[in-house]
Amino acid sequence: MVNLVMIFSPQSKVWIYQSSRQFTTTEAEEIQGKLNAFTAQWKAHGHQLNAKAELPYRFFIVLIVDQDAASATGCSIDASVRVIKEIENTYGVDLFNRFNMAYKIDGEVHVNSKEDFETLITIKKITPQTIVFNNLVQTLEEYEQKWEVAIADSWHSSIFAEQLNA
């Protein structure tokens, strides 16, 4: 992953959409093309947004807006959501289900339902050291420092405390 703090303000706004499955290489290339076209013309009240889109691990869509240049507004955010919904419909994925949990095992990203994730904790396939994705990060700085964290250091630990401590 490129260190975007060199290009964008650390306080740039970040939105993360997690896919219910990994995009194929071809899908990821097509989606990146759509997102590049969108961010190149993304405006807020007539002002061009300094924006970028990434597809880390081919599981996530990350939109970044450097608000030092111009801030995203309600209408511009709505425009981004329309693009995400279009991608969702075109590729048959769910990008808005916040109950899907993403994590890494042996460096490979997996996504499961909350229930299956809970089962994996119970059978100790997921431990407090397992890396999870904190899609609630708000800024570029948080994204680069706190997006991939051990479950023990994330909000997940409070939700699944009983299973993790069993």
Rank of each mutant, 00 (worst) to 15 (best):
L4V: 12
R82Q: 15
C75V: 10
E162A: 10
Q67T: 15
Q11H: 08
D78Q: 01
A70M: 05
L164H: 04
I16E: 08
E88A: 10
F96C: 02
A69R: 12
I123S: 10
I77P: 00
E27G: 00
M6D: 09
E118V: 08
T130P: 01
A152L: 08
Q11K: 13
L164E: 05
V93K: 05
Y91W: 01
N50L: 02
F133C: 06
G33M: 09
F133I: 15
E144L: 06
E118K: 14
D153A: 09
F8Y: 12
K104S: 04
V93F: 03
K125M: 08
S19R: 13
N36E: 14
E54G: 00
E162Y: 07
T119S: 04
Q22K: 15
V137C: 07
K146M: 04
D116Y: 11
D106T: 07
I123Q: 13
A166Q: 12
S157R: 15
F59D: 03
T122P: 01
T73I: 12
V132S: 04
K52T: 13
M1A: 11
S71T: 12
D94S: 10
E86V: 09
E115A: 09
V93N: 03
Q18V: 08
P10Q: 14
A53L: 05
V5D: 10
N3F: 00
K114C: 01
I105F: 01
I105K: 03
R58F: 05
H156D: 09
F23S: 00
L63M: 03
E144W: 08
V62G: 02
L49F: 00
A28M: 04
I126K: 08
W155H: 07
I159G: 01
E30D: 04
L120Y: 09
V149I: 15
D106W: 02
D116N: 04
I105T: 11
V149H: 11
N89T: 14
A72V: 13
F96S: 05
P128F: 09
T122I: 15
R21P: 02
E54P: 02
I123F: 03
T139V: 13
L140E: 05
A150I: 12
V109W: 05
E29P: 03
Q163R: 12
Q41C: 00
E86G: 03
A51D: 12
V65E: 07
